[in-house]
Amino acid sequence: MSYTIIGFGNIGRALAMAFSRKGIEVSVATTRDPESFAADAAAIGPKVIAKTLAEAVKADIIFLAVRFESHPDVAKALPTWQGKTIVDVTNAYGVPPEKLGGQPSSLVVAQAFSGAKLVKGFNHLVAAVLDQDPAVHGGRRVVFLASDDDDAAAEIGVLAENLGFAPIKLGGLSEGGLLVHARGNSWGQLIFKDLVKFD
């Protein structure tokens, strides 16, 4: 299984740190030339590899960690996203609900990435928290996952556990997923909630 993170801002870097901490190889990409951020990627860890967008989208699992407004540009990188799982880490805060057609933002993202399985996840924590070791006081930091595809949610749940997090599945995008969606000037009720699960 191969992994990539599209977007190398604070959230993208925090995700790269999570992979690096567990020694799992991950590629990182933006719309910029990878030479411009290769040193920053290498500084996170030897298994964080800067790639072009065209190379990075060959991965099986793709974390979308760009600004919500930028997702259509990323979606143009492939004619079809069949066989790929997209983890939507974007937040559509400030985007008017009418621009989303009244839908949760992840459904809008899912339409752009036609053919992909989509999981909303890892978006409710701010970068400074996501950046920290998820092992906290003998427990594991919680990440919420929502998807209309149970298999995809299970797959990302296993990855979250491998990264040291405690995944909690919220159900479909239009049901439990609304708890981790931003719309207009409001945040879902679980956004910013830093919870720890003790086994």
Rank of each mutant, 00 (worst) to 15 (best):
K169Y: 13
D88Q: 07
I24K: 04
N10D: 10
G101F: 01
V109N: 00
Q82A: 15
G9P: 09
T90Q: 00
A152Y: 00
L107W: 09
T30L: 07
L173Y: 00
I62V: 06
D60V: 09
A39H: 13
D149M: 08
T31L: 08
V158L: 07
W81I: 01
F8R: 02
V109Q: 00
V142R: 07
D150R: 09
Q189C: 15
S114Y: 06
A128N: 13
P167H: 06
I11R: 04
I49G: 04
V180G: 11
A77M: 09
L159K: 02
A112Y: 07
H181Y: 09
V48S: 01
I191Q: 07
W187I: 05
F144N: 14
D133N: 12
F192R: 14
K58F: 12
A14R: 03
H124Q: 11
L159R: 02
I6R: 11
R67P: 11
R67K: 15
S36V: 14
A59T: 10
E98F: 14
R13H: 07
L190A: 10
P96W: 14
D149S: 14
E175A: 15
L195I: 10
S2F: 08
A110T: 01
V87E: 02
T31M: 04
V89F: 06
D150P: 11
G45T: 07
V108M: 05
D151N: 06
D131R: 13
W187D: 04
D133Q: 12
G45S: 06
D40Y: 06
V158W: 09
I6Y: 09
S147G: 15
A110N: 09
A56W: 01
A42F: 14
V126L: 14
L170T: 08
V142C: 08
H71G: 06
P167C: 08
A65T: 08
L190E: 13
N162S: 15
A59R: 08
A160G: 03
T85E: 00
P134F: 02
G9Y: 08
A43T: 10
T30V: 11
I168T: 12
V129K: 13
